[in-house]
Design a protein around this nucleic acid. Structure first.
Length: 434
RNA sequence: GUGGAAGUAGCUCAAUGGUAGAGCACUAGGUUGUGGUCCUAGUGGUUGCGGGUUCGAGCCCCGUCUUCCACCCCA
């Protein structure tokens, strides 16, 4: 292969390898997610990465950025319009309907962990393939579930050692949202010449989106704009207040934030984001978010079904763990290194390794290397407590050497007693440690 | 999609327009089969790619790709 051809193989834009050295972070995060799932009785669900494009048009919303310009969509060989999922609430809702989960005790609680795809310009904390962990409670409009879902996310971050704040808002429902949109639209129309270009368009198309516009002028105007919470219908207001009361009970630190509007059309009532302030810039960045989506299941052809859920970005979370230098558990450590010298020894070590593993001894090796020096160097790098050394001499004598890596003291033991001797020493060490 | 910065060895980085280097890492040695420190040597590059200017380009110019950063959006 030519140099040129070699160079041609590189990461697709916006993709990342997750290397062995990164895995301890991923395992840690995954484990905490799994723990929370089982503690709060959310069952794991894995839906396919591919769904019909129509699913996202219908759920996420045809006029959202995600659907308009960020989806990986293609036509497959059977002439079907297919999309790599850009998020998972739609897929989970689809599964809920299609698998008849309406017949299970409600609400149905589910969690997921997997990769998602959006064709966006990569930058810090933003990739084209990214991973999320998410929790969904489908089949109840109880505000206590809003609080529980929010709380699970807070617990997730707290267990990792991250101090996040939840920004919360209520978007109202199909009944009261139009009222508010009208009021807001009227307000904005009156100030139209002071708005940025984007917001001028938003006034008629989707005035809610103007609320979190980042333009300074627009921000100023938004400070005096009518707020959603003041235009909620009674049911939505009660629901919102109840949610906040439950959060108080759980001692969840939240921040009422009318700018949380969310970029997906299916959200109703509660909308929230988990934010953390950047160490250097002080800027707030979102690690996750979610909300209620009481209309989604029906929109996708199911019965009217209330639901609430949230998702957390794994890469952003890990980035934060690294930035704050937060300790995560080390990967598996080895207690023993098995060194061999010569053809015969290698053969015997091959099966000795298996026997050690059966005896639940963490043993490392590099049978493909010959020199003892090299093998001891490896043993040293792996930070093992003992190295077992087997050479010609030991084979003839029916023995094996146990080398204490700290002091360098070596003992000769009967080859057939190697495993109990090793276990005895490891046990003694542990005893000393405590 | 818009704007800004940067691309040299696996990693971190040097190199007035004049023969591409260091540290780390990796490999092999420093007499028989012994690590942590040390010493020696070696492998590894068409300087992201393609053009242009020049006697001569890693360096200057243009394009392109990728990464990073900001906007937008979101996770």
């Amino acid at each position: 292969m030519s140099k040129k051809e070699k160079k041609a193989f590189q990461l697709v834009k916006g993709m990342k390898d997750i290397l062995p050295e990164d895995q301890r972070y991923w395992e840690h995060v995954r484990r905490i997610g799994r723990e929370l799932g089982s503690q709060y009785n959310y069952g794991r669900i894995d839906t396919p990465i591919l769904e019909f494009t129509k699913l996202f048009d219908r759920s996420v919303g045809a006029y959202t950025d995600i659907v308009e310009k960020e989806m990986y969509s293609f036509r497959d060989r059977g002439d079907e319009d297919i999309t790599l999922r850009p998020e998972n609430t739609a897929g989970v809702a689809r599964a809920y309907i299609e698998k008849g989960m309406v017949n299970l005790p409600q609400p149905v609680k589910l969690y997921y962990f997997g990769p998602f795809f959006r064709y966006d310009k990569p930058q810090s904390g933003r990739q084209r393939q990214f991973w999320q962990i998410g929790f969904e409670a489908i089949g109840s409009d109880a505000a206590v579930l809003d609080a529980q879902v929010i709380n699970i996310g807070m617990k997730f971050f707290r267990r990792l050692g991250l101090a996040v704040v939840v920004q919360i808002n209520s978007l109202g429902c199909v009944d009261c949202r139009p009222n508010y949109q009208e009021v807001l639209s009227d307000y904005l129309k009156g100030k139209k010449n002071q708005l940025c270009e984007d917001c001028k368009r938003r006034v008629t198309k989707n005035p809610l989106r103007a609320i979190d516009c980042k333009e300074e002028e627009c921000q100023k105007l938004m400070a005096d704009a009518p707020q959603q919470v003041d235009y909620l219908c009674e049911a939505c207001r009660d629901h919102f207040i109840a949610t906040l009361e439950y959060l108080d009970e759980l001692e969840v630190v939240y921040n009422l934030n009318p700018k949380i509007v969310r970029g997906l059309d299916y959200y109703t009532r509660t909308a929230f984001e988990y934010t953390i302030s950047d160490q250097e810039s002080g800027r707030q960045s979102a690690l996750g978010g979610g909300g209620r989506y009481d209309g989604l299941v029906e929109e996708l052809g199911g019965r009217p079904t209330a639901a609430v859920g949230m998702a957390i970005g794994i890469e952003r979370t890990i980035k934060e763990l690294r930035a704050q230098d937060i300790k995560v558990p080390e990967k598996q450590e080895y207690d023993i290194f098995l060194a061999q010298l010569g053809k015969e020894a290698r053969k015997k070590c091959l099966s000795l390794q298996d026997k050690l593993l059966e005896a639940e001894v963490n043993v490392a090796e590099n049978f493909s290397r010959d020199g003892l020096k090299t093998q001891l160097e490896l043993a040293n790098k792996l930070n093992v407590k003992y190295t077992l050394i087997l050479g010609q001499k030991e084979i003839v004598d029916g023995t094996i050497l146990i080398r204490d890596m700290e002091g360098g003291i070596q003992e000769v033991v009967d080859f057939n007693k190697a495993i109990p001797e090793v276990k005895k020493r490891l046990k003694l060490r542990d005893g000393e440690g405590s």
